[in-house]
Simulated scan of single mutants.
Amino acid sequence: MPHRYFTTEIADGAAVLRGSDAHHLARVMRAKQGDTVILCDGNAVEYTATITGFGDECVEFRVEPGYPSAAEPSVEVTLLAGYPKQDKLEQIIKHGVELGCTHFIPFFSRYCVAAPKKEEQKNERYNRIAFEAAKQCGRGVLPDVALPLPNFGAVCRSLAGYDLVLFCYECGGEPLRQLLAETKPADGKKLKIAIITGAEGGFAAEEAEMAAKAGAKTVGLGPRILRCETAPLAVLSAVMT
Rank of each mutant, 00 (worst) to 15 (best):
M1L: 07
R4W: 10
T8W: 00
I10V: 13
A11L: 08
A14M: 02
A15I: 02
G19V: 02
D21I: 08
L25Y: 06
R27C: 08
R30A: 10
R30S: 12
T36Q: 10
V37G: 03
I38L: 15
D41C: 12
E46H: 03
A49K: 05
F54Y: 09
V59F: 13
V63P: 03
S69R: 12
S69V: 12
A70T: 11
E72I: 09
P73F: 05
S74L: 12
E76I: 02
G82N: 03
P84N: 10
P84T: 00
Q86E: 12
Q91H: 14
Q91D: 05
I93Q: 01
C101P: 07
H103M: 01
H103V: 09
F104D: 01
F104V: 03
F107V: 08
F108I: 00
V113H: 05
A115L: 13
Q121Y: 05
R125V: 13
F131T: 05
K135C: 02
G138D: 09
R139M: 10
R139L: 11
D144T: 14
N151T: 01
V155K: 14
C156H: 01
L159Q: 03
D163G: 11
V165F: 00
L166K: 04
F167Y: 15
Y169W: 15
G172S: 06
R177Q: 14
Q178I: 04
L179W: 00
L179R: 11
L180H: 06
I195Y: 02
I196L: 02
G201N: 03
E206F: 11
A212W: 03
A216V: 02
G220Y: 00
G220S: 09
G220P: 11
G220T: 06
L226C: 09
T230Y: 09
P232A: 11
A234S: 10
A234N: 01
V235K: 07
